[in-house]
Amino acid sequence: MTPLQLLFLGVFGLAAIWFGWRVFRTKSMVRSALSLLAAMVALGGMFLALDAEFLGVLQIMMMAGEMSIMAFFMMMYMMDPGGMSSMNMTHQQRPAAAVGIGAGVLVLALALLTPWPPAQALAPSATQQNHDLGIELMTRSMMIFETAGTSILVAMIAAVATALAYPQQPD
Protein backbone atom coordinates (compact mmCIF):
# COMPACT_ATOMS: atom_id res chain seq x y z
CA MET A 1 0.00 0.00 0.00
CA THR A 2 1.29 3.45 -0.87
CA PRO A 3 1.35 6.19 1.81
CA LEU A 4 -1.34 8.02 -0.17
CA GLN A 5 -3.64 5.00 0.05
CA LEU A 6 -3.02 4.80 3.80
CA LEU A 7 -3.83 8.50 4.14
CA PHE A 8 -7.10 8.12 2.23
CA LEU A 9 -7.93 5.03 4.26
CA GLY A 10 -7.53 6.99 7.50
CA VAL A 11 -9.41 10.07 6.27
CA PHE A 12 -12.36 8.10 4.88
CA GLY A 13 -12.37 5.90 7.98
CA LEU A 14 -12.57 8.88 10.33
CA ALA A 15 -15.31 10.37 8.14
CA ALA A 16 -17.25 7.08 8.32
CA ILE A 17 -16.97 7.03 12.13
CA TRP A 18 -17.98 10.68 12.42
CA PHE A 19 -21.04 10.33 10.21
CA GLY A 20 -21.94 6.99 11.81
CA TRP A 21 -21.92 8.75 15.16
CA ARG A 22 -23.98 11.65 13.82
CA VAL A 23 -26.72 9.18 12.78
CA PHE A 24 -27.75 8.70 16.41
CA ARG A 25 -26.89 12.17 17.66
CA THR A 26 -29.25 14.35 15.65
CA LYS A 27 -32.89 15.16 16.34
CA SER A 28 -33.76 15.29 12.65
CA MET A 29 -34.42 11.84 11.23
CA VAL A 30 -33.91 12.93 7.63
CA ARG A 31 -30.54 14.29 8.65
CA SER A 32 -29.64 10.98 10.25
CA ALA A 33 -30.59 9.10 7.06
CA LEU A 34 -28.30 11.44 5.13
CA SER A 35 -25.56 10.95 7.75
CA LEU A 36 -25.83 7.20 7.27
CA LEU A 37 -25.58 7.74 3.51
CA ALA A 38 -22.42 9.81 4.06
CA ALA A 39 -20.96 7.09 6.30
CA MET A 40 -21.67 4.47 3.63
CA VAL A 41 -20.12 6.64 0.91
CA ALA A 42 -17.03 7.12 3.11
CA LEU A 43 -16.91 3.34 3.44
CA GLY A 44 -17.11 3.07 -0.34
CA GLY A 45 -14.15 5.47 -0.47
CA MET A 46 -12.26 3.12 1.83
CA PHE A 47 -13.04 0.23 -0.51
CA LEU A 48 -11.63 2.29 -3.39
CA ALA A 49 -8.51 3.05 -1.34
CA LEU A 50 -8.21 -0.71 -0.73
CA ASP A 51 -8.09 -1.33 -4.53
CA ALA A 52 -11.57 -2.91 -4.57
CA GLU A 53 -12.87 -0.64 -7.32
CA PHE A 54 -15.94 -2.68 -8.25
CA LEU A 55 -17.09 -3.13 -4.67
CA GLY A 56 -16.46 0.52 -3.82
CA VAL A 57 -18.53 1.86 -6.70
CA LEU A 58 -21.22 -0.75 -6.06
CA GLN A 59 -21.36 0.24 -2.38
CA ILE A 60 -21.75 3.94 -3.18
CA MET A 61 -24.47 3.35 -5.79
CA MET A 62 -26.46 0.86 -3.74
CA MET A 63 -26.35 2.90 -0.58
CA ALA A 64 -27.37 6.10 -2.37
CA GLY A 65 -30.55 4.34 -3.48
CA GLU A 66 -31.20 2.59 -0.21
CA MET A 67 -30.70 5.63 2.00
CA SER A 68 -32.90 7.90 -0.11
CA ILE A 69 -35.66 5.28 0.19
CA MET A 70 -34.98 5.19 3.92
CA ALA A 71 -35.40 8.97 4.11
CA PHE A 72 -38.80 8.66 2.36
CA PHE A 73 -39.96 6.01 4.83
CA MET A 74 -38.78 8.20 7.69
CA MET A 75 -40.95 11.06 6.52
CA MET A 76 -43.91 8.66 6.16
CA TYR A 77 -43.66 6.91 9.50
CA MET A 78 -42.10 9.32 11.95
CA MET A 79 -44.11 11.51 14.22
CA ASP A 80 -41.48 14.20 14.00
CA PRO A 81 -39.19 13.58 11.01
CA GLY A 82 -37.71 17.06 10.92
CA GLY A 83 -36.89 17.17 14.62
CA MET A 84 -38.77 20.43 15.05
CA SER A 85 -40.00 19.63 18.54
CA SER A 86 -37.39 18.27 20.90
CA MET A 87 -38.93 14.82 21.27
CA ASN A 88 -36.80 12.20 22.94
CA MET A 89 -36.27 9.31 20.54
CA THR A 90 -34.04 7.18 22.75
CA HIS A 91 -34.45 4.84 25.68
CA GLN A 92 -32.12 2.88 28.00
CA GLN A 93 -29.22 5.18 27.13
CA ARG A 94 -26.76 3.94 29.75
CA PRO A 95 -27.02 0.18 29.12
CA ALA A 96 -26.94 0.89 25.38
CA ALA A 97 -23.74 2.93 25.70
CA ALA A 98 -22.21 0.29 27.97
CA VAL A 99 -23.02 -2.56 25.56
CA GLY A 100 -21.88 -0.55 22.53
CA ILE A 101 -18.56 0.47 24.08
CA GLY A 102 -18.05 -3.02 25.52
CA ALA A 103 -18.62 -4.76 22.19
CA GLY A 104 -16.49 -2.19 20.35
CA VAL A 105 -13.59 -2.62 22.79
CA LEU A 106 -13.89 -6.41 22.58
CA VAL A 107 -13.76 -6.40 18.78
CA LEU A 108 -10.96 -3.84 18.84
CA ALA A 109 -8.94 -6.02 21.23
CA LEU A 110 -9.50 -9.02 18.97
CA ALA A 111 -8.36 -7.02 15.95
CA LEU A 112 -5.27 -5.65 17.67
CA LEU A 113 -4.15 -8.76 19.57
CA THR A 114 -4.53 -11.34 16.78
CA PRO A 115 -1.17 -12.06 15.09
CA TRP A 116 -2.23 -11.35 11.50
CA PRO A 117 -0.05 -12.65 8.67
CA PRO A 118 2.02 -10.00 6.86
CA ALA A 119 0.00 -7.82 4.51
CA GLN A 120 0.15 -8.49 0.77
CA ALA A 121 1.79 -5.62 -1.07
CA LEU A 122 0.05 -5.89 -4.44
CA ALA A 123 -3.55 -6.42 -5.47
CA PRO A 124 -4.67 -7.58 -8.93
CA SER A 125 -5.60 -4.80 -11.35
CA ALA A 126 -9.22 -3.70 -11.57
CA THR A 127 -9.72 -5.47 -14.92
CA GLN A 128 -8.22 -8.66 -13.58
CA GLN A 129 -10.41 -8.43 -10.46
CA ASN A 130 -13.63 -8.07 -12.44
CA HIS A 131 -12.67 -10.95 -14.71
CA ASP A 132 -11.73 -13.24 -11.82
CA LEU A 133 -14.77 -12.28 -9.74
CA GLY A 134 -17.00 -13.10 -12.72
CA ILE A 135 -15.30 -16.48 -13.14
CA GLU A 136 -15.70 -17.13 -9.40
CA LEU A 137 -19.40 -16.21 -9.53
CA MET A 138 -20.07 -18.52 -12.43
CA THR A 139 -17.98 -21.52 -11.32
CA ARG A 140 -17.09 -22.37 -7.74
CA SER A 141 -19.48 -20.00 -5.93
CA MET A 142 -22.36 -20.27 -8.37
CA MET A 143 -24.73 -21.91 -5.89
CA ILE A 144 -24.11 -19.17 -3.30
CA PHE A 145 -24.68 -16.49 -5.91
CA GLU A 146 -27.88 -18.15 -7.07
CA THR A 147 -29.01 -18.51 -3.46
CA ALA A 148 -28.52 -14.77 -2.96
CA GLY A 149 -30.72 -14.12 -6.00
CA THR A 150 -33.40 -16.50 -4.77
CA SER A 151 -33.38 -14.92 -1.33
CA ILE A 152 -33.96 -11.52 -2.94
CA LEU A 153 -37.02 -12.98 -4.68
CA VAL A 154 -38.26 -14.56 -1.45
CA ALA A 155 -37.74 -11.31 0.46
CA MET A 156 -39.64 -9.36 -2.21
CA ILE A 157 -42.61 -11.73 -1.97
CA ALA A 158 -42.42 -11.74 1.84
CA ALA A 159 -42.23 -7.95 1.99
CA VAL A 160 -45.26 -7.49 -0.28
CA ALA A 161 -47.23 -10.15 1.59
CA THR A 162 -46.37 -8.58 4.93
CA ALA A 163 -47.21 -5.04 3.89
CA LEU A 164 -50.61 -5.86 2.31
CA ALA A 165 -53.64 -4.43 4.02
CA TYR A 166 -55.93 -7.11 5.39
CA PRO A 167 -59.58 -6.62 6.39
CA GLN A 168 -60.00 -5.93 10.10
CA GLN A 169 -61.59 -8.82 11.96
CA PRO A 170 -64.60 -7.76 14.03
CA ASP A 171 -63.99 -8.65 17.69
Binding site: I17, F24, M29, M78, M89, T90, H91, A96, A103, V107
Partner: peptide
Protein backbone atom coordinates in the same frame (compact mmCIF):
# COMPACT_ATOMS: atom_id res chain seq x y z
CA UNK B 1 -0.66 -1.13 9.48
CA UNK B 2 -3.44 -0.78 6.90
CA UNK B 3 -5.13 -3.90 8.29
CA UNK B 4 -5.01 -2.45 11.81
CA UNK B 5 -6.54 0.84 10.59
CA UNK B 6 -9.38 -0.96 8.79
CA UNK B 7 -10.17 -3.38 11.60
CA UNK B 8 -10.12 -0.62 14.24
CA UNK B 9 -12.48 1.57 12.21
CA UNK B 10 -14.78 -1.40 11.67
CA UNK B 11 -14.75 -2.15 15.42
CA UNK B 12 -15.75 1.44 16.24
CA UNK B 13 -18.52 1.39 13.60
CA UNK B 14 -19.80 -1.91 14.99
CA UNK B 15 -19.92 -0.44 18.50
CA UNK B 16 -21.80 2.65 17.29
CA UNK B 17 -24.28 0.44 15.40
CA UNK B 18 -24.90 -1.74 18.44
CA UNK B 19 -25.41 1.35 20.59
CA UNK B 20 -27.95 2.65 18.08
CA UNK B 21 -29.86 -0.64 17.90
CA UNK B 22 -30.26 -0.74 21.67
CA UNK B 23 -30.87 2.95 22.36
CA UNK B 24 -33.27 4.00 19.58
CA UNK B 25 -37.03 3.71 19.96
CA UNK B 26 -38.01 3.96 16.29
Amino acid sequence: MALTICLSIAAVLFGIGLYGVISQTN
